[in-house]
Design a protein around this nucleic acid. Structure first.
Length: 224
DNA sequence: CCCTGATTCGC
DNA sequence: GCGAATCAGG
């Protein structure tokens, strides 16, 4: 991903709105938290209370990197591919309500009055007459997360609960009411727990060897 | 451990 | 310019 004007505007807006770098990175997609921070600093919009910037007032003796001439980095190839993040997933979007037109009172807007422009759910930005930040970044109706509907789903691992350190082995079938994921801690370096790694990764058998169970796709035919 | 932002530095 | 690696505080 590259820093298009749109993405930069979005970054600025979200950063000034107070979102954390992680949240912004997640929102933008395709970039890491570090990338966001790096870009923010390059854009000059740094500051904002950093948890690590306690000191400064009169402490000057701060030897930073005394002997940094030999970094000698040893990248760890032990883990072939570190899972970066959950696969991009289309989150449910709230259906647009169009039935409350009656409530839309036409607001008289003096042209010299600063407008208040929505940049997303709960987020607004003043925009004066002089300001031209043309198309305000499209406000994706994300972050609106459906509540766990039923008590028996409350402790199940939903799609939205997935992260890099819990097992994403699916249990049940997408679309079913109780579809969820395994959710126990992963076998480090793998997307599944030890048990499910055992099912996901199987030793290559020599040709001709008869393999026990012919797995049916998607868990087999479903009776309906 | 998790999180945070800041900084460095090889690309 | 970019961002992973690293640092350092909470």
């Amino acid at each position: 991903m590259s820093w298009t004007d749109q993405r930069i505007d979005q970054l600025k807006a979200l950063w000034e709105k107070g979102l954390t770098a992680s949240q912004i990175a997640e929102e933008l997609g395709g970039v890491s938290r570090n990338a966001v921070i790096g870009k923010a600093h390059r854009l000059g919009l740094k500051s904002r209370p950093s948890p690590v910037k306690a000191n400064d007032t009169d402490k000057k003796a701060a030897p930073k990197k005394p002997a940094a001439a030999a970094p000698a980095k040893a990248p760890a190839p032990a883990t072939p591919v570190r899972p970066r993040a959950a696969a991009p997933v289309a989150e449910p979007i709230a259906p647009a309500r169009a039935d409350d037109d009656a409530a839309e009172a036409p607001v008289p807007r003096a042209s010299s009055m600063p407008r208040v422009v929505s940049i997303g759910p709960g987020g607004f930005m003043r925009q004066g007459p002089g300001d031209q930040q043309a198309p305000i970044p499209p406000a994706p109706p994300r972050r609106l997360v459906p509540a766990k509907p039923s008590p028996e789903m409350a402790d199940k691992t939903s799609l939205l609960d997935l992260n890099e350190r819990i097992c994403r082995w699916p249990l049940g079938h997408p679309g079913e009411a109780d579809f969820h994921f395994c959710g126990v801690p992963v076998n480090p370096g793998f997307p599944y727990c030890v048990e499910h790694c055992g099912r996901a990764y199987q030793a290559q058998l020599p040709r001709g060897v008869r393999r026990p169970p012919p797995p049916m796709p998607f868990g087999g035919p479903r009776v309906r």
